[in-house]
Structure formats: structure tokens, C-alpha cells
């Protein structure tokens, strides 16, 4: 029976989404949601920082450049697909593409937990790649839209909470290494519970956004399923190039397949007030996040197991 069911974490998300559609809202207050994301981001950052210190090699620098290139390629591919198959204006097109070139830390956290439940190990560098993959699409998107205008301020690009919290965790974990171990050990049991609560919140938010697609509904829903599959394939190719393990390949495929719903909307709302951020947010959160959590991650893990 259990083989027919989605992953245990996906069920928290799925039930919350269905219940929201039935009219009961399980979403948390903004401050509670913020606390959940703080714990998740700091735990990922601290663990990544600790592991990076112990596993640091010079190949990490070249691998990081390849991962940054992956972020740029994903944004350009998304732009090409949207340009070919939809009638969106340039501003909306680039905004949507930037969402899909960036990553979702929430989806990454679900994939981490999925691998932990299965007892699959992964390279610590993936925690660094999450932070690295947040930015290229934002830079490419803003450059594309502002080619003939003054540049956007660095604060707009870098000054968002998720990236800063990840970096704080990475730096503290990296500096203190084993000294930070007791703190990480205390955060670790909380991680699964916080993630379950986070998914209940996200299910409720995704459920409330299903009615907000607007006139591009068919294209957005199809794009939000097509793009993760294509991006996961590109992520698989990159993982093979980097020589990652099955766990690492699963995580890089998941990262490539995920779409941002925190950092990119925040930056584009400030930098491009005319862009339709809402429709990109609905596609990335309501469809792509749901798709990745329920169907994507087990699929990526299976394919990584076959190929890697």
C-alpha cells in the first residue's frame, strides 16, 4: 500500500492543499512562517558550512563556477521556451524565466529530508550550491531588462533574507566547524518537524493561489510542469559532469527543477514594478513546488540511481 502513496512529507503538503481548497486555511501567521524558514535556512547553512570546512578542495571553486553557469543556462532556456510558446511581453517573460532559473530552498529542504529518510548520503558542497544558484537568474533577468538603463542597486539583488540566512549559517558553520556541532545536533531533530509545519503552511498558500492564474492559465500550468522536467535533465547532465554521488545528483536535479518563490519575487517586485510577478509566483509555488514535492523528488532520486 505504502508504495502507492507519495512521500510522507508530500502528504503534509497535499492534505493542507486539499483542505485549503475545501475552505479551511491552515496557513500560519507571517511571523510563525518566518521563524520556520529561519530554522530551516540556518540548519542547512550550518551543516553545509561545517561539512565544507572538512571537505574543502580546490576543485570546489571550479565546480562552483559550473553550478553558476547552470543557473544562467536554466534562465536562458526558460526565456527561450516562454518566448517561443507564449504571447507574454518581455518584462513578464523575463520575470517568469528568472523564477525558474533560480532555486527554492524549501524544495531543497524536502529533498534533503527525503534522502535522510532513505539513508542516502550526499556531498556537503550542495549546501553551498543552493546559495550560489539563488543569484545568477536574478542578475541575468535584471541585466536583460535594464540593458539600456541604469543598473539596479546591489542591495536589491543581494539584500533578501533567505540568501543572508544561508550565508550566515555557511560562514558560522565553516568558521566554527566541530565547535558548532552541539548546536547542529539540537537543530537536527527540529528540522523534520519544522519542515512538516512548513509544508502545511505552503500547502495552504499553494491551495489559495490556484485561482489566480489569469489569462495565461493553460500555458503557465504546462510550463510549470515542463520546465522542472527539462531543468532536472540539465541538472542531471551537470551532476554527471561534476561526478556527484546518487544523493548529490538527486539534490542537484531537485535544485535545477525547483523555482524560486521567495528571493526572485522580492527582488523583481522592487526592481521591476511593471512586471507581472504574481503570475510567476503562482506558477512556481502552486504548480512547480507541488509537482516537485509530490512527484518530482522521488522521480529525480530514481533516475539518479539509474544513471549516476
Amino acid at each position: 500500500m505504502s508504495s502507492f502513496l507519495p512521500d510522507i512529507l508530500a502528504l503534509f503538503f497535499l492534505f493542507s492543499l486539499i483542505i485549503r481548497r475545501l475552505g479551511v486555511n491552515l496557513a500560519f501567521q507571517p511571523a510563525t512562517y518566518q521563524l520556520l524558514t529561519y530554522v530551516l535556512l540556518l540548519t542547512i547553512g550550518l551543516k553545509g558550512g561545517q561539512a565544507l570546512t572538512s571537505e574543502f578542495t580546490f576543485s570546489l571553486i571550479s565546480n562552483s563556477l559550473i553550478v553558476i553557469a547552470l543557473g544562467v543556462v536554466l534562465t536562458l532556456v526558460a526565456m527561450l521556451i516562454i518566448h517561443t510558446f507564449s504571447a507574454m511581453n518581455q518584462s513578464d517573460r523575463v520575470t517568469l524565466a528568472a523564477h525558474y532559473g533560480s532555486v527554492s530552498v524549501g524544495t531543497f529542504a524536502v529533498a534533503l529530508s527525503y534522502l535522510q529518510l532513505k539513508g542516502v548520503s550526499y556531498e556537503a558542497a550542495l549546501n553551498l550550491y543552493v546559495a550560489l544558484l539563488e543569484l545568477p537568474s536574478i542578475l541575468v533577468g535584471l541585466w536583460w531588462l535594464n540593458r539600456n538603463q541604469s543598473s539596479t542597486s546591489l542591495k536589491t539583488i543581494f539584500g533578501h533574507q533567505s540568501l543572508m540566512l544561508l550565508l550566515i549559517g555557511l560562514v558560522i558553520g565553516g568558521l566554527y566547524g566541530d565547535i558548532a556541532e552541539p548546536m547542529v545536533k539540537q537543530l537536527q531533530p527540529l528540522f523534520a518537524v519544522m519542515l512538516a509545519l512548513y509544508l502545511i503552511h505552503m500547502g495552504a498558500v499553494a491551495g489559495s493561489k490556484f485561482g489566480e492564474f489569469g489569462s495565461n492559465q493553460l500555458f503557465l500550468i504546462c510550463f510549470a510542469i515542463f520546465m522542472p522536467l527539462l531543468a532536472a535533465a540539465i541538472g542531471l547532465g551537470t551532476a554527471l559532469l561534476l561526478g556527484l554521488s546518487i544523493g548529490g545528483t538527486t539534490l542537484l536535479m531537485t535544485l535545477a527543477a525547483s523555482a524560486s518563490y521567495i528571493a526572485v519575487p522580492a527582488v523583481f517586485e522592487q526592481a521591476q514594478p511593471n512586471a507581472n510577478v504574481a503570475q510567476a509566483l503562482v506558477a512556481s509555488l502552486a504548480v512547480t513546488f507541488s509537482f516537485n514535492v509530490i512527484w518530482g523528488i522521488p522521480l529525480y532520486h530514481h533516475i539518479a540511481g539509474v544513471v549516476a
Partner: peptide, 14 residues
């Protein structure tokens, strides 16, 4: 074009 893309999506998923 949107319909063509939706059939492409279905094909890819399948």
C-alpha cells in the same frame, strides 16, 4: 502555440 506546448508537456511527462 499554447496548445502545441501543452501536448509537448504531456508527451514529455509520458
Amino acid at each position: 502555440m499554447t496548445l502545441v506546448f501543452s501536448f509537448l508537456t504531456l508527451l514529455m511527462l509520458l
